[in-house]
Amino acid sequence: MELVGAIFTLIGALVLLVASIGLIRMPDVYNRLQVGTKASTLGTIFSLFGLVLVNPGWAGKLILLIFFVMMTNPVSSHVLARAAYFIKIPLTRRTVVDKLKVSDSALKVKAD
C-alpha cells in the first residue's frame, strides 16, 4: 500500500514537471493557462493522494488540501484569463476563431 502511494506521488511529480515544460513551450498566455491549470491541478492531487495512501493517519488534512486545490485553481485561472483578455494581450497567430471580439459589448462595459 505504501509503495502504491509513493508511486502515485511520483506520477504527480512527473505531471507537475510536464506542467512547467508546457509553460515554457506554449505560444501565448491562454494556452499557458490551459496547460498550467490542468496539469498542475492533477499533479498536486496525485501527489497528495499518494501521501494519503502512504500515511493514512494524515488523511483529514490532505483531503482538505486536495479539495482546496480543486476549488481554487480553476477560479484563479479563469480570473487570469479574463484579466488577460481585458488588458488586450493578443492571442497567438495560430488562433482560428475569436467569438468574444465579435460581441465586444463586454469590453465597453469594462471601459466605463
Binding site: 507537475l16 506542467a19 512547467s20 498542475s40 498536486t44 501527489s47 497528495l48 484563479s76 487570469l80
Partner: peptide, 10 residues
C-alpha cells in the same frame, strides 16, 4: 507564480 505555489504545496 501560481504554478510555483501549487507545486510548492505538493
Amino acid at each position: 507564480f501560481d504554478i510555483m505555489t501549487i507545486s510548492s504545496i505538493a
